[in-house]
Design a protein around this nucleic acid. Structure first.
Lengths: 336, 336
DNA sequence: TTGAAAGCGCTAACAA
DNA sequence: TTGTTAGCGCTTTCAA
């Protein structure tokens, strides 16, 4: 019962394995009577093709792996949802790999110890230097997500973080804010993501003739609402005064919102807050978040397109695609 | 370069495939010189074992699939994170399957069309009747999550939803609330989860001598903050008056918070709100959420334990395990 | 249109 | 301790 083979079906139907295979694969040139006979045998035996055997024979696994630090971060969860859907529409299943942002786990992603596990990998590194990524063996097709300075040899999808950070910061400047802080980047080992956003932040302030006050730049122990809230609580207790806040991501913004409210500050009246990612919760915080909204569907589509081209045999220099983003204005930092 | 086989390594090293295999598997009884020679050959050739071939030979895939409606729901994302970690510690990788809560997708999960894809399945159904689940072919080990009345033939992990709902409701009653509503269950095709929570809600009100006012039971178009907020907005616009709210989950609570605030009501002064799931955001809403906190680590551990027993050959009646939960009191519904 | 047979790369039982 | 070899179940030329 458990192990019905293609061969068993063939024997019961009195045909060859090839014929059964043709039926299973909907191969058009099979006479209706053959097909009927084979299908009867299939359902009588309860036959199901064995995925491992098929994979060994074809060399294709029909699986992609999706690797990033942590699925429980809303941005990644929402991205995973989209990628899983789009991948499934293209006939792939998704393997979930969490790195927890450790360099060891990220290395393990890059240097797959097993061949033939997945057909391709979509990977958003957080710690790994691009030099190291570029030195990997080009065994399995890889597309990088996120904002690292991607090595020339690898395909890559990102949004223009610097431009978006400039827009977010300028939005606060335009609203007349002058004591604008930045919250939520890692305290040590900053991810490239954070660095690019910080850079845009600084460029925008410079352009507005405001100098960056380093005491208003508040790093966080880790990427989470809790750590951002803790960092902001300390900064506020320390007497620092903000009237605007660019947050590294929406989680940091949510933590900051909490710390500001505990400190008796009103958002946006006293402090305007801008987040990043437009996670679904951003519309439901109190106040709702003005935020940078990467076009995640486009990111996922670009990544899958390039991955499929690689899987299809394309070899060539790494392509760098820039995905769109929009700037969503809500209550935490209105336009005026 | 791409296709180095075990055999190639064996030839280069001048040994048999078995010896190479022994080395690859860390088999202890290999002479050091052999080991060294083989390892040299492995790295010279850049050999990596082929996962598909290994799986075909052993019949084990080392993969589990995790199926539920939607990873972007925080509860599922957080659960997925934990399960992925624990599974990985046990040597399994995780395949992500989203059903979107459609019955067709749930059927596809239950009746795996391919054999040998995964060693086991962890599945939280939302629509599927338990009768149908029990009729499935017992091909691949399955553990059910969540609160359905699980068929006797299948392993199952859940928390006692009814008891938790009673506790949540009683908490509001004890604080003197009398116009207690329920928000966020599906409007049609209620999941068993919702029904059990509603039942506990009703039992607690009955026990307190309060009758359930059906106009305070506010269903939502779907499980999301947005739909719950919309439903609550309509209820409030309709003139319904609440002083307490048991929410089907934290997302519903977040939506409700939003609607209440827009309506000028204060939480908890005017309306006390209790959520469910204790998603990480629950500590950062404004006000923070009092909520039922299922012990997700325990849920994941129980599920994996039972799954591994099944994979290991255990056959027997389905076991039903009840996991712990706690009731976390925060600002949205304080103790007094 | 259908059949026969040679792999795909690895494991594991059995020998040596 | 190491070698031989027969599968695992499917795909895929090449024939018929």
């Amino acid at each position: 019962m458990a192990n019905v083979r293609l061969q068993d079906v063939a024997e019961l139907a009195g045909v060859s394995m090839k014929t059964v295979s043709n039926v299973v694969h909907q191969y058009p040139h099979v006479s209706p009577s053959m097909r009927a006979r084979v299908e009867a045998a299939i359902s009588e035996l309860g036959y199901r093709p064995n995925a491992s055997a098929r994979r060994l024979a074809t060399g294709r696994t029909g699986m992609l792996s999706l690797a990033f630090s942590d699925v429980s971060l809303p941005y990644f969860a929402e991205l995973a949802r989209i990628i899983a859907h789009l991948a499934s529409a293209r006939g792939y299943r998704l393997l979930l790999e969490q790195t927890d942002g450790t360099i060891e786990s990220e290395r393990a992603i890059i240097s797959t110890r097993e061949a033939g596990l997945v057909d391709g990998v979509i990977f958003q590194p957080s710690r790994m230097p691009s030099m190291e990524i570029s030195k990997r063996r080009a065994d399995v097709p890889l597309v990088l997500l996120g904002e690292g300075p991607a090595p020339l040899s690898v395909d890559h999808v990102m949004i223009d973080n610097e431009a978006a950070a400039i827009q977010a910061t300028s939005h606060l400047v335009a609203a007349g804010r002058t004591r604008i802080g930045f919250v939520g980047h890692e305290e040590f080992d900053q991810s490239v993501t954070s660095l690019q956003r910080l850079r845009g932040f600084q460029l925008a302030l410079d352009a507005a003739g405001l100098t960056v006050d380093m005491s208003l730049v508040v790093p966080s122990a880790a990427i989470s609402a809790k750590d951002a809230a803790d960092a902001m609580r300390r900064a506020l207790a320390d007497g620092r005064v903000f009237d605007g806040l660019v947050c590294r991501d929406d989680l940091a913004a949510i933590g900051a919102l909490r710390a500001l409210q505990e400190h008796g500050l009103r958002v946006p009246e006293d402090v305007a807050v801008v987040g990043w990612d437009d996670i679904s919760m951003a519309a439901f915080t109190h106040p709702s978040l003005t935020t940078v909204a990467p076009d995640t569907t486009q990111i996922a589509t670009m990544a899958l397109d390039m991955l499929e081209e690689r899987i299809g045999g394309y070899t060539g220099l790494g392509r760098h695609r820039i995905a769109d983003y929009s700037f969503v204005v809500r209550e935490s930092a209105p336009s005026d």
